Amino acid sequence: MQTRLPFFQANPAAMRALKSLDGQLAASTLEPALQELVRLRASQLNGCAYCMDVHTADARRAGIDDRRLALLPAWREAALFSPRERAALLWTEDLTLVADNHVPDASWQQVREQFQDAELVDLTLLITTINAWNRFAIAFRKLPAG
């Protein structure tokens, strides 16, 4: 597989706009480890190799151990994730796969119990942003370092 388009070079202004969303998320109250779990899970669902590579490394730097990383795709069956992380992962899956389920009320109830209003907006922005990054990386074939 070969890169189709170096999108950062093709339109730096558009990429700065997308990166500004990451700046908002860095200033949010969402824990860095939680953010990386969300980014990695959405990237797994989307099949974005580049983003999975980046966010696995970022997750390790945020203190997430290899066991939790390995079990992330099976988070429902693994007792290694907190109620807050489980709610965030459920919200991540529902928003990433929104066309499949239109975000069920049960998911809303679960995430609502774990996150305050501003955090819910930031969590939704986080999921939306990583999905946008995934789409750029997949569409233009941004590849992990060899």
Rank of each mutant, 00 (worst) to 15 (best):
M1Y: 10
M1V: 12
T3P: 06
R4I: 15
R4D: 13
L5V: 11
L5S: 03
P6R: 12
P6F: 14
F8L: 11
A10L: 09
A10N: 08
N11R: 08
N11L: 10
P12L: 07
A13H: 11
A14F: 05
A14V: 08
A14E: 05
M15T: 09
M15N: 06
R16W: 05
R16Y: 09
A17P: 00
K19T: 07
L21M: 12
L21Q: 11
D22K: 07
D22V: 05
G23H: 05
Q24H: 13
A27Y: 07
A27I: 00
S28G: 05
T29I: 02
L30T: 00
A33Q: 00
L34T: 07
L34V: 05
Q35S: 14
Q35L: 11
Q35V: 04
E36I: 01
E36W: 02
E36A: 08
L37D: 01
V38S: 04
R39K: 14
R41C: 00
Q44K: 06
L45E: 00
N46G: 01
C48N: 06
Y50W: 09
C51N: 07
M52Y: 01
D53V: 04
D53K: 04
T56W: 10
D58I: 03
D58H: 06
A59T: 07
A59D: 10
R60T: 03
R61D: 13
A62V: 08
A62W: 04
G63F: 03
I64W: 14
D65W: 04
D66E: 13
D66V: 05
L69I: 09
A70I: 03
A70L: 08
L71S: 10
L72G: 12
L72D: 08
A74N: 10
A74P: 05
W75N: 11
R76C: 09
A78Q: 11
A79T: 14
A79L: 07
S82R: 06
E85W: 11
E85H: 06
A87N: 12
A88D: 13
L89I: 09
L89K: 08
L90D: 14
L90G: 15
W91P: 00
W91T: 00
T92M: 02
T92I: 06
L95T: 13
V98L: 15
V98K: 02
V98R: 14
V98M: 11
V98I: 15
V98Q: 12
D100A: 13
N101F: 02
A106W: 15
A106L: 11
S107T: 15
W108N: 02
W108S: 05
Q109W: 12
Q110G: 15
V111Q: 11
E113L: 12
Q114A: 15
Q114P: 00
F115G: 01
Q116F: 07
Q116W: 07
Q116M: 13
D117L: 15
D117R: 11
D117M: 02
D117H: 05
E119A: 13
L120E: 01
L120T: 00
V121E: 06
D122E: 13
L123Y: 04
L125Q: 12
L125R: 14
T128F: 03
T129M: 07
N131P: 03
N131H: 03
A132E: 05
N134L: 04
N134I: 01
R135M: 06
A137P: 03
I138E: 04
A139N: 13
R141Q: 13
R141K: 11
K142P: 01
L143I: 06
L143S: 06
A145I: 04
